[in-house]
Design a protein around this nucleic acid. Sequence first.
DNA 1: CACTGTTTGTACAAGGTCCGTCCAGACTTG
DNA 2: CAAGTCTGGACGGACCTTGTACAAACAGTG
Lengths: 322, 322
Amino acid sequence: MPVRYTVKQVSQLTGISTDLLRAWERRYGVVSPRRTASRYRLYGDDDVARLRRMAELVAGGAPASLAAEQVVAESPPDLDGGTTASPDGPQTSGNGHRTPAGGAELGWTPAALPPSALPPVDALAEAARNLDRAALERTLDRAMAAGSFETVFDEWLTPALVRVGEGWAAEEISVAGEHFVSAAVHRRLSQAFEAAGTAVNAPVVMVGLPPRTMHELAALALATCLRRRGVDVRYLGADLPVASWVSAARRLEPAAVAISVPRPADEQAAAELVRALAEADPTLRIFAGGRGCAGWGEEQPATVLQGSVTRSAHDLAVSLAT
Amino acid sequence: MPVRYTVKQVSQLTGISTDLLRAWERRYGVVSPRRTASRYRLYGDDDVARLRRMAELVAGGAPASLAAEQVVAESPPDLDGGTTASPDGPQTSGNGHRTPAGGAELGWTPAALPPSALPPVDALAEAARNLDRAALERTLDRAMAAGSFETVFDEWLTPALVRVGEGWAAEEISVAGEHFVSAAVHRRLSQAFEAAGTAVNAPVVMVGLPPRTMHELAALALATCLRRRGVDVRYLGADLPVASWVSAARRLEPAAVAISVPRPADEQAAAELVRALAEADPTLRIFAGGRGCAGWGEEQPATVLQGSVTRSAHDLAVSLAT
DNA sequence: CACTGTTTGTACAAGGTCCGTCCAGACTTG
DNA sequence: CAAGTCTGGACGGACCTTGTACAAACAGTG
């Protein structure tokens, strides 16, 4: 279940040469990857995050030695050389919360896989029903610890949030309950986003929602997945006016723009936005995903992202590389 | 966790040439950075603050010698291993001329004192203007590392966000820029919230916003402060319908309810919400804070929280204990 | 006004440190 | 067998340190 990478993969993921990767390890001990029987290095997701953070500091002008010191100070020793999702984040005081995932009334297609060692999908809905903070945190902790962000998000969080949505539709769960859970998931996603870090000369991708469109969770999850793939995400959030999208795209000249269209009701605004962006810069690569654009065909100047958020991030990243 | 900088970094941070940095240290002893084993200088955030202050005074026309004197007088040597122990006396070697002590009283005006180890308040607005992710993260990193959550929030983040708002009003910052920064701040607040944890038999407080009210940052900050004080916060987020507030309060029977009313335009909805909550349970303790309820008086069944978010959290917590 | 001394920002040289990169020879993997 | 990885050492350019030097700006004095 835990994903492992070889030096070369990590090098591609982080933009750090394999030589330098080994030098940083030897000289500063920023990471200490597990080894195979033949002493080949096997990096975990947390190693990658740490290395990205270090690369970022160095790119910001810090000397390698100081950057390393800061990185190890920020994320705790993590001795058990494993893929233990490092609690990361500047403060790691009391309860070690794990890296999160999430998405409430997502409006994106859930993946079709059944849960495994994860908490029951109903647990989230149950916590929502009772506004039970302890249960909510316990459930999210367990889920996040069960695997990589992508796996947990697709296989557990998405279906769990769909379940919450159903409970709301059946009036078993109040709006407060739904907000309560969404906000918690949003916070976990934020942690995952922050934990990801960005490679040095990464392609820039703008991520956000059309005007008058509110539900951020899927967009934030997509942003997190992209960041974990090394993309330099500029996350712009919900309800961004068309004119502002256009001027931001002009200014940033991103490699791509990704628009989340969670609800069918948002389709109109999304279509308008896509049209304006394409008109302002016909060469701009525009991606859109979510229920709101599920029916779009070729007539749109945007590429429609199909499937789960994780899958969409994969497709987008692949598409960027070509 | 103390961040250290090399001469070059400090030079970039302060705009003072490396040569001049060394000259000021040698001639006036304004700073005496710690050294590495190989005698490289390592500056701390407080050194940077002091140097910035000195540069500001010099730019304002003060002679360097007097500026230095003033700076060391303002922030006396920080004893705890931080920095600046008195070097080898403020100069006695070659040109150790001290101007008469009376010189400080005359002529040039001492500028306002900037906060100590924190990044410049403008840094956030600048990052917003350019949608500069690296600068944004670096700035927030430095700020959050500079002190307790409460201090940093009140003394730096709040003014910095106000600055962003001014930039937006002056059309120097786009909506995208504002969203970009808000989303990042939201993520940091989320991390702080998650890091806080909750005591066992803590009082329950519901925190959220009235219907059709969107700006969450203050509410989330309040929630974080309360959690750091041991309160069992049930964070309900933005735009929660009155009926849902009421039913949630019925179900939870919280020790108190805290409502954030960020904008004057939200006053109407907030008043309606307060009325409904009070009617449903006259014994419920209702608190409200933010510009939108600044003018409320006694006629409201809600207690108005005055002052900063941190102050409000303090007042609320004290009020709970009675 | 000319003369003299002080202040202060800048420049440079000689020498040490840091760190990204390159390499060689041996082993592993597919 | 080709491609990938391992270890340790070595090289060179960027960076830092100390010390000295110098010119512009300014003040006081005869």
